[in-house]
């Protein structure tokens, strides 16, 4: 069978579908001081999943949406915030302010961050010493 680390080079999704791959990618991003980008990507996925689960309180969803907004979007100098378009940030801010919590409210922001990873940090990771040493 194909070793996992070769699969990681196929696509960003193959990498993010493997625990060891995520761990190594995160170590690399930490070195580059942008691990928040990966955490934000997973937080968006987790937020959508929470919404899909029955029995989760509305209050918890609101609290989580606020927490994601505060940690990653509010600070315009943050690594995540800098990669997200102003219109997307306004949309999320509006959702939080009006307490309009929607399962898809972070989707556009997640897509923008994902594109940035695919074009930037992911190719760099595949060329990094961390990845090459691992292989």
């Amino acid at each position: 069978p194909t070793p996992p680390y070769l699969k990681w080079a196929e696509s960003l999704h193959s990498l993010l579908d493997d625990q060891d791959g995520i761990h190594l990618f995160r170590t690399f991003l930490k070195q580059e001081e942008c691990a928040d980008v990966l955490d934000f990507w997973f937080a968006c996925t987790g937020f959508r999943k929470l919404e899909a689960n029955e029995g989760q309180g509305e209050e918890k969803k609101l609290k989580l949406a606020k927490a994601i907004y505060k940690k990653y979007i509010l600070d315009n100098n943050g690594i995540v915030s800098r990669q997200i378009k102003p219109a997307t940030k306004s949309f999320i801010k509006d959702c939080v302010m009006r307490l309009h919590i929607d399962p898809a409210m972070f989707d556009q922001a997640q897509t923008e961050i994902q594109t940035m990873m695919e074009e930037n940090t992911y190719p760099l990771f595949l060329k990094s010493d961390i990845y090459l040493e691992y292989t």
């Binding site: 579908d17 493997d18 625990q19 997973f42 999943k49 609290k63 989580l64």
Partner: peptide, 20 residues
Amino acid sequence: IDSEDDLLQECISSAMPKKK
């Protein structure tokens, strides 16, 4: 009551793939 950070961490962990 969960702190915001705990809530975020829980959310991030829930999105990660489970060990194969």
